[in-house]
Amino acid sequence: MKTTLEQWQLLQAVVNYGSFARAAQEFNRSQSSLSYQLTLMQERLGVSLLTIVGRKAELTPEGQQLLAQAQPLLQSFHALENRASALKRGDRARLDLVVDSIFPKAFLFSALRHFQQTYPMTQVHLTEVLRSERLSDLKKREADVYLVTQTEDVAMRGKALMGVTFVAVAHKEHPLWQLPAPFSRDDLARYPLIEIVDRVQQQLHSRQFAAAENWTFTAIEAAIEAVAHCVGYGWLPEEHIQPLLASGELLPLPLVQGARRTTQLYLMVNEERNVVDQEIALLVDLLSGDKER
Results as ranks from 00 to 15, higher is better:
P252I: 13
E238V: 06
V227A: 09
L250C: 06
P243Y: 00
H240V: 08
L236D: 04
L236Q: 05
A228D: 10
V227L: 12
L251I: 01
L245S: 04
L253Q: 02
V231W: 13
L244D: 00
H240D: 07
L244F: 03
L245Q: 08
L251M: 08
A246F: 15
I241Q: 06
C230Y: 15
P252R: 10
P237F: 01
E239Y: 07
V227Q: 04
V231T: 05
I241F: 07
P237Q: 11
E238I: 05
H240I: 12
P243S: 00
L255Y: 12
H240N: 06
W235I: 15
E249W: 14
A228M: 09
S247G: 03
P254C: 09
V231Q: 15
G232Y: 14
E249T: 05
L245I: 15
S247P: 01
L251D: 09
P254Y: 10
L236V: 02
H229N: 14
L245N: 11
Y233H: 01
H229C: 12
E249Y: 12
S247D: 11
V227S: 14
W235Y: 10
G248K: 13
V256S: 01
V256F: 03
G248Q: 15
L255F: 01
P237K: 10
C230T: 10
H229T: 10
P237M: 08
Q242F: 04
H229V: 11
L255A: 07
L236H: 05
E238A: 07
A228V: 12
P254H: 07
L250E: 09
H240L: 08
V227K: 07
P252N: 08
L244H: 01
P237C: 01
G234P: 05
E249D: 06
V231M: 11
V231G: 08
